[in-house]
Design a protein around this nucleic acid. Structure first.
Length: 219
DNA sequence: AAGAACAACAACCGCCGGTCG
DNA sequence: CCGACCGGCGGTTGTTGTTCT
């Protein structure tokens, strides 16, 4: 049985006050982003460490860009979402100064609605009048971003986010190769590791008609 | 003017993977 | 090797502000 991440009894919840923000900012300015679990106590905050982390990363960090999304940012989010699915942190990584939470909220409150109005399914970026891939079953075509998500490996750790060969369907490749979209998604890796990885190529059994592409997620 | 409905955003929750003892 | 801890992520909920009736 896992211990709760913090003592719920002595924890403040809800919106952060100015004083709390200031305490957190002051502490991190002096000590840096250290162990989030210990920060609340050290900073004199009655908050969960996770809450501190979220507050800092999403709102207090000095390099955060607030305000409305530019048209090109919105465009990029749509294209990245078509490519990556709900990988908000990856998408946010391509938008300087934007956080995953902000991108996620913007998607859910603005873009999603907009696409629906345009008659596009926000989950798979296809027109609502479903059309199936020539080689895909109707059930597969009807599936949502889940099927798309399953094709793209998640790179949660630096080691995992190394050199991967990722396969895309022709349709996804068409999105990527669109002239208006330059994702520059190549993953760099020390040459010493490439050999090791190539011994264990990532298997893709999903589709027989896929194109291998190298993706670079370095910003 | 008041209440309802909707939209936008902030924050929480639970799960997962990586790391360390 | 295993279990606990920790950070990170995505889904979801709660709150506040705005628009509509």
């Amino acid at each position: 049985m896992r211990k709760p991440c913090c003592d719920k009894e002595n924890i403040n919840k809800g919106a952060w006050s100015k004083q709390e923000d200031q305490k957190l900012i002051d502490y991190i300015r002096v000590h840096g982003e250290g162990c989030w679990r210990s920060i609340p106590k050290a900073a004199g905050l009655h908050r969960c460490g996770k809450s501190c982390r979220l507050r800092w990363l999403n709102y207090l960090r000095p390099d955060i860009k607030r305000g409305i999304f530019a048209e090109d940012e919105e465009d990029l989010i749509i294209k990245l979402h078509a490519l990556l699915g709900n990988r908000w942190s990856l998408i946010a990584g391509r938008l300087p100064g934007r956080t995953d939470n902000e991108v996620k909220n913007y998607w859910n409150s603005h873009i999603r609605r907009k696409l629906i109005k345009m008659g596009i399914d926000p989950n798979n970026h296809k027109p609502h009048q479903s059309f199936s891939r020539p080689h895909a079953s109707s059930a597969e075509a009807a599936s949502t971003s889940e099927s798309m998500n399953n094709k793209v490996p998640i790179f949660k750790s630096p080691l995992a986010a190394t050199h991967h060969r990722i396969s895309f369907t022709e349709q996804e490749s068409a999105i990527i190769s669109s002239p208006s979209l330059n994702l520059d998604l190549t993953i760099a890796l020390p040459s010493s590791m490439i050999g090791a990885l190539e011994d264990k190529p990532v298997q893709n059994s999903e589709s027989t008609k896929t194109l291998d592409m190298e993706i670079d997620l370095n910003c």
